[in-house]
């Protein structure tokens, strides 16, 4: 067995794929192939005869890779199995980070470890970016609703911006609700009364 590993990364998003490849290449000079998902994934993977396949745990294409474990029949050596028997702690870390790894049977755990560690770190970064993006979006949405509610109050009661805001905040505190909930109710009511 040669020292470099043949690794397949299944990732349809080009930007993400490049980042994973960078992370893996930094770890060592492995040969990394990138495949999008889609038709005949299992066959294309099998043709490359990889040592290791990495795929986002949330990829709907994962089930297509299950065929790899079957391709050669149960009595022969499987083409790939989920990285499991060797190191369950590593498996857990990978799954929690959001990456699944399929490893050719018989590959020594110490050879997989550095690659997986690099992949896990990269996927942690992805999921952090994803939740940050979601949080930012949600905050922006809330901000818009609050601004609209403030505008309604200013017009209806002839208040300044600060006064309108203070009034909403007080209502929220009195009712034990979030400011955005109160603002949402005001916007809904104001639209009905238009």
């Amino acid at each position: 067995m040669s020292e470099t590993l043949t690794i397949i990364v299944v990732e349809p998003d080009r930007q993400r794929a490049l980042q994973i490849v960078d992370a893996l290449s930094a770890a060592a000079g492995h040969q990394v192939h990138v495949l999008g998902d889609g038709a005949g994934l299992a066959r294309r993977v099998a043709d490359i005869r990889p040592d290791l396949v990495l795929i986002d745990i949330a990829s709907p294409s994962r089930d297509m890779l299950e065929e790899l474990a079957l391709a050669s029949g149960p009595t022969e050596r499987p083409v790939a199995v989920f990285v499991d028997k060797s190191d369950s702690g590593l498996t857990r870390a990978a799954i929690e980070a959001g990456v699944s790894a399929y490893v050719v049977d018989g590959l020594r755990p110490e050879r997989i470890r550095p690659v997986l560690d690099a992949a896990i770190a990269r996927f942690h970064l992805f999921s952090r970016m994803r939740s940050e993006l979601a949080a930012t979006k949600a905050a922006l949405e809330e901000r818009k609703v609050i601004d609209r509610a403030k505008g309604f109050i200013m017009r209806a009661k002839g208040l300044s911006e600060d006064q309108a805001y203070a009034l909403m905040r007080k209502a929220a505190m009195d009712q034990g609700k979030r400011l955005s909930e109160v603002a949402g109710a005001i916007v809904t009511a104001a639209e009905l009364l238009k």
């Binding site: 994962r62 089930d63 890779l65 299950e66 857990r92 699944s100």
Partner: peptide, 16 residues
């Protein structure tokens, strides 16, 4: 909500 049966099975395996 899972995106694949493999994902569900893995989540069961590690107790997620």
């Amino acid at each position: 909500r899972a995106a694949s049966w493999s994902m569900l099975r893995d989540m069961l395996d590690v107790g997620q």
